[in-house]
Design a protein around this nucleic acid. Structure first.
Lengths: 337, 337
DNA sequence: TATCTTTATGGGAACATTCCCGCAACCGAT
DNA sequence: ATCGGTTGCGGGAATGTTCCCATAAAGATA
């Protein structure tokens, strides 16, 4: 049973003064006599007064709440990003409401709608793997909501974006495989329309080109990050007349699955086939052999995205053209290559 | 730049009617003529009216926001719980604000304070491993906030609690080890004051007792879930005149670390030492050999905790006898035993 | 026709807070 | 003694919404 919350009017009545004076005393307004202030503060303490932020939010039209839209909090990558966002936002007095889209563009849209009604002060958004229509984001933009796009970004709007080191990541991984002597390198990519997937593939292709290795379309397979797609790709590659002797993927979970598939067929890693991933997920160091991968630092991505949001809210960068921030990573060599 | 939000007064002015009528039309109040309702609805649509929930929250003294206090969203266990809470709460129109304590009792306290000011409708709380003083929770309870305690629970209050199958989990794991012929079984436990740790240890001891195996205090080590504590424990055990031939832990991450330590000393698992965990974390199936463990279903814990909270919120004035709900699990046998 | 009920609407209070404005009282200076 | 300025405080508006009450017109019953 929730009790009546103590208000400044209660304090005012008890002391026989007006609510204006109580408000002044509580907000450190100079126009209050020291004695009155002391009395108010003591009364507030003894009644256990808690200011009602709702009333304040209504007046200021500001909730100090941030909406964070992610596909799935159970993926370590997103959990780390959320953690970064929360830590930097919390320091500035902002709370975050997390909403999961479960990789459904429809739910993504509904969540944004709901958070808009909750009057969050801004949105930090990572789209589903299938989001192709950005009308709901454009609506937010037109309404003037501060927006930050991260990881799976919306390119169609001039808003701050924070992404992984996509191109460089797969360029470096591929370069590393080539240096280790692998020549027939397959790539497990993501959805074709996804910017991150495109860039990673471009990094892969750039490394091949630079080393005079012909691009073989048969060695590149696109997935929607689903297990079935991965095994289909591996099946296809191993059935080729000249199968790959190295497989790199644009996400670690895929690489881990590739390793399991290869092992179940009795192939040795890296002697028969080398495997490399992208992300340096916690699993990468736990599987055997350890997975060579490109480290991305999702916690830092969260920090950067949060920083952009706070800057926007402070109106620091109103006229600065919104830029794309790349969160740099580095190659982590383990025994899978 | 954020624009002026359209209000019911704007609609009223445009149509030359009162805000009361607009409100009625929008809330499906029967006392509005069909023509007026139609006009209001159309005007609302054309002006892109969004109701201001802040004003409503102020009146109803209800935000439809839930506060979730967890130690660390990056732990898969907590991420899954959060996911469960969000899914069930979202279905009932509740949003959740997640706050991480980073295992600091002080931050836990501050977060609760902050969420109280944000006027959340209730709290779902999992304490830090070091929380021993529950005064901040008692304050919430006295103020009448609906509370649910999960995983690392507060026993000092008559509130709904959801926990893992602690006793039974370690009882089953230990029983399994004994059946496989292991007799000298060590236990890596948690902080002594933690209820979950106590119960799991009791399960372990019950299984030993039932099989006529003497309890050896040297084989039980308490940790604060920190890597250093784990290696110290393993060091101590291996230095014993008669070292254990099986090690079970009350958390999977500890078991994985134990496995790594054993392997680095050239010991084979399970031939030299068997290892078992608790939790069935994602890592359990990825390490080699696969980790035998007791499955706990954190997503279900989240669902149950959320359900308790929603029930409490629905029957605002009737106290439901607070019960402790055990989320049952089952043994998962892999090759580590 | 007179009275009673229904229907559609408007006006205001309420929620908790801040902020602007006005009004005394007091002080120092002319 | 009067003037201008400060100080401390109260009253009210404003934020956006719902809900209660009043009021008018319309319809129903005697």
């Amino acid at each position: 049973m929730k009790k009546h919350q103590v208000t400044i009017i209660d304090i005012a009545k008890k002391l026989g003064i007006s609510k204006s004076t109580v408000s002044r005393a509580l907000t450190n307004n100079p126009n209050v006599s020291p004695e009155t202030r002391k009395a108010v503060l003591e009364m507030a303490k003894s009644l256990d007064y808690q200011p009602n932020m709702l009333a304040l939010s209504l007046i200021r039209n500001e909730t100090r709440l941030l909406g964070v839209i992610i596909p799935d909090i159970q993926k370590p990558f997103f959990a780390a990003i959320v953690s970064g966002i929360q830590h930097i936002a919390g320091r500035m007095g902002y709370r975050t409401i997390i909403a999961q889209s479960d990789e459904s563009p429809q739910i993504e849209k509904e969540n944004i709608q709901a958070l808009m009604l909750s009057r969050v002060d801004g949105f930090l958004i990572c789209h589903t793997r299938d989001t192709r229509n950005f009308d709901h984001i454009k609506t937010l933009y037109q309404k003037g909501f501060p927006l930050v796009s991260f990881a799976r970004i919306c390119q169609e709007l001039p808003i701050p974006k924070v992404v992984e080191d996509d191109f460089n990541g797969l360029y470096t991984v591929t370069q590393h495989l080539i240096e280790r002597g692998y020549r027939r390198i397959a790539l497990l990519a993501g959805p074709k329309h996804m910017q991150a997937s495109k860039l990673r593939q471009q990094g892969y292709m750039a490394a091949l080109r630079q080393n005079g290795i012909a691009y073989d379309q048969e060695l590149v397979e696109h997935t929607r990050f689903l297990p079935d797609h991965v095994s289909a790709a591996v099946d296809k590659w191993l059935a080729l007349p000249e199968p790959p002797n190295a497989i790199c993927t644009i996400y670690d979970a895929g690489a881990v699955q590739v390793m399991q598939l290869l092992k179940s067929r009795g192939l040795r890693i890296p002697e028969d086939v080398a495997v490399a991933g992208f992300g340096n997920d916690p699993v990468a160091s736990l599987v055997e052999p350890g997975l060579t991968t490109f480290e991305q630092r999702p916690y830092e991505i969260g920090l950067l995205a949060g920083k952009h949001m706070l800057d926007t809210l402070k109106k620091k960068f109103t006229d600065v053209p919104p830029q794309i921030t790349i969160c740099e990573g580095k190659l982590i060599v383990r025994s899978s290559t």
